[in-house]
Write a protein that binds this DNA or RNA. Structure first.
Lengths: 276, 276
DNA sequence: ACAAATTGTCTTATATAATGGACAGATATC
DNA sequence: GATATCTGTCCATTATATAAGACAATTTGT
């Protein structure tokens, strides 16, 4: 590949004069955090050399860290080239997370049911790392070329669910929360933060949100909220439907969504009072 | 506080000779690995103080590490007391693992189908950390008080699946792999390693395995293998059925399992040749 | 066939992360 | 209400993990 790559402008804070000699040392755990984030972005196994380049970390350091992580089952080594990817332990930890949040588990089942019974693509969405994130998805019957696999992250202003997920934030909080660059939709003119804040407010008033052709020009996105016991929006259910879906069908799907969301909202998140 | 869990006798190695001087310093990442393992064992949120005690780590160190991990979404803080547990990022990484191993995903769906169509409790089991581990489970219709939640780990010799999962190891490898203390079943006389090796060999010959009352005195365990393209056993499907299940029903369930396992074994684990 | 790039392992130095302890504010316990 | 036990933050010290480079064994490209 590229033999050199000047480490694109020394990410992080190199310190104004740190250039003197050796780049600053980084904590192993911080590198691991970045490593995980990178694997998640890339979405497939990565060689250690490539990892070192991508994280601008010394190879010798990465070999050590990867050894520890693979021994722990947090990473696994695949292929003859020794590429690494998320390991079995992370699967189990993810299942632990799911068990602790049983709303999520029930919502996943509901997404499957919605997709099966309506034939449309249904999703469960949550807020993660200041982005709209697909927590679960069940493909509909139509052959859709959807970009919405589980784990995909999309700027909040591009989505209907994003408006609902920010319902509980004040205008100032939204301003501080949404990265400015996220206001530019993939195609079309950028949106002002003020307009987006107003859109969030309207989504809250209505209790649902429908957008057209925002992330994909040929789809509508229909979203409804799931609340926790305190009434805050913790997740959304949504349908992604073809652009030519008739209005009354969209209304019907919306109502289906609202019903499902309401049912999911009722059940307590876990054993109510924490007995002990 | 919680006098629960006998702490499994000080796992890990404190260092072959570390006893000599004051407790040696430990790498942050190593502590995190232990932290994750501990949370998984305990299975519910744990306060930082308790964590420090359980891992015999300094509190000040843990506060630092937990801060980093929660900022990264690997842990999350719940409750007014600030207990921590696995965070959303781990859920997403777990989903990434699942996507990378689509056999697992298909096997999960199959377990659901088996449980639905037979009414029995079905499981998907894998080898993890030298233990038999429940990777997925779908409860049957009978009201079972099963201890087999997802993530539960059981000594290999206590299970039918354990015998299949070790099919590809030589006698010596098995001897080295199975912790000696795992040979003691929960009730009844301990098994010799030799007897267990023979049981593994027989499971391989038969292509399935049925055990009675091993982990639970009132159940049978019926297990069948899932192979990878090289013929190695990568996972098992199994039914957990009541002790009074008639023999012919058990045979039928076994055949169902073998068929499912065979179908799952056929499909390639991912895109075959890695096009590049 | 050679040359160029890559992988994985080692070794040394030094920047720094882990540590233990002190601390104030909260909670629980008596 | 007094006492004990918690939680969370901050500091100075020092053991050590990170970084950098050299190395042989591969793999890759021409």
């Amino acid at each position: 590949m590229k033999p050199d790559i000047p480490a694109v402008s020394e990410r992080g804070e190199p310190g104004p004069n740190a250039s003197a000699r050796g780049a600053s040392r980084e904590r192993g755990l911080d590198r691991v955090v970045e490593l995980f984030a990178h694997l998640h972005r890339v979405g497939h196994p990565v060689g250690i050399g490539d990892l070192a380049r991508a994280l601008s970390a010394p190879r010798s350091t990465l070999y050590g860290l990867v050894r520890i992580l693979t021994d722990a089952g947090l990473l696994e080594s695949v292929g003859p080239r020794g590429e690494v990817f998320f390991g079995k332990s992370l699967y189990f930890y993810g299942m632990d997370f799911l068990r602790e949040h049983d709303v999520l588990g029930r919502a996943r089942a509901e997404v499957d049911r919605l997709a099966r019974e309506t034939g449309e693509t249904a999703q469960l969405c949550v807020l993660h790392e200041r982005k709209y994130s697909v927590a679960y998805m069940s493909a509909g019957r139509r052959p859709f070329r959807i970009s919405s696999e589980i784990g995909v992250q999309i700027p909040l202003p591009w989505t209907a669910s994003g408006r609902l997920l920010l319902s509980d934030l004040s205008a100032d909080e939204i301003r501080a929360f949404v990265p400015p660059e996220d206001l530019h939709p993939p195609r079309g003119a950028p949106m002002t933060i003020g307009a987006f804040i107003e859109a969030v407010a309207e989504a809250r008033r209505q209790g649902f949100c429908i957008t057209s052709g925002l992330v994909d020009p040929f789809t509508h996105c229909i979203a409804g909220p799931i609340h926790d016991r305190l009434g805050r929006v913790t997740a959304t259910l949504c349908f992604v439907v073809a652009f030519d879906t008739p209005p009354e069908r969209i209304k019907a799907l919306r109502d289906t969504l609202l019903t499902s969301g309401h049912v999911l909202s009722l059940a307590p998140d876990r054993e109510p009072p924490r007995s002990l």
